[in-house]
Amino acid sequence: MFRILDARWLAPGIKLFVIRAPRIARKHQAGQFVIVRLYEQGERIPLTIENADAPKGTITIVVQSVGKTTQLMNSLEAGEGILDVVGPLGKPSIVEQVGTVVVIGGGVGTAMAYPTAVALKRAGNSVISILGARSKEFVILEREMREVSDAVFVTTDDGSYGEKGLVTDNLRRLIASGLRIDQVMAVGPIPMMKGVADLTREHRIPTVVSLNPIMIDGTGMCGGCRVLVGGESKFACVDGPEFDAHQVDFDILMRRNAMYRAAEQRSVEEFHEQGCPRISEPAGSTRPTCDEGANA
């Protein structure tokens, strides 16, 4: 059982959790993730590690309500527990001093991009961040990103905050301004990452994306997270999750991520009709409640 020490909403449907996990906290490096299973009948899902505090033995993860598991997770509060948290998984980000790096976070992807931005800055790079979101209320971790960035641009789809448009519009302007960009790192929805990859390919800017395929064990055993990179099958959990954006087949990734849409829909519907599933936990632990409901 992994205890939740703090839980707070960052945006509608996006929640931050501080979880006691000393082993993971000690070993976490930027770019890695955890897999959680909330309760006995639960599925295993990969989640972003936003931060880790080794001395305190805690990790911070950020969760967006999408399916049943993430909605249930986001109904948890401080003091409650998570049955399984395993990690840190995946290869750490490759952090080198390359010059100027543009870090792009789309939606909840900013949580994955943040620790890499910190590491890139620490390695002596000039970091320019672009944060994209649907609207103002969905912009997350802006303050944190400003602390580690030399410049931050915010774009929203509806123009309610920052500039109206997509992160790629902003990136295109940066490129057009003649600024020398040595590397781009993008984490977010697949169409966003694909858009960034298409743009930087034209301009021959090395680009890294962090992929989020369907995953079960997270140790290379099942092969469910395989992605096509440069015409070769790669496992996001052990070969990634970061890959050369210009080699990734985003269309296959998008299609594979939609594979269980019907089942996911059914789970969400039953979850909403029946409320929280019975969560069986060892004696003495508290049980998640549905008081908060799903905010998504």
């Binding site: 009948q41 599925e43 295993r44 598991t69 089942a263 059914r266 789970s267």
Partner: peptide, 12 residues
């Protein structure tokens, strides 16, 4: 993951 018991178990 007990997918044969979906949707009692969450993994499909």
């Amino acid at each position: 993951m007990h997918a044969y018991e979906f949707p009692k178990y969450d993994e499909p």
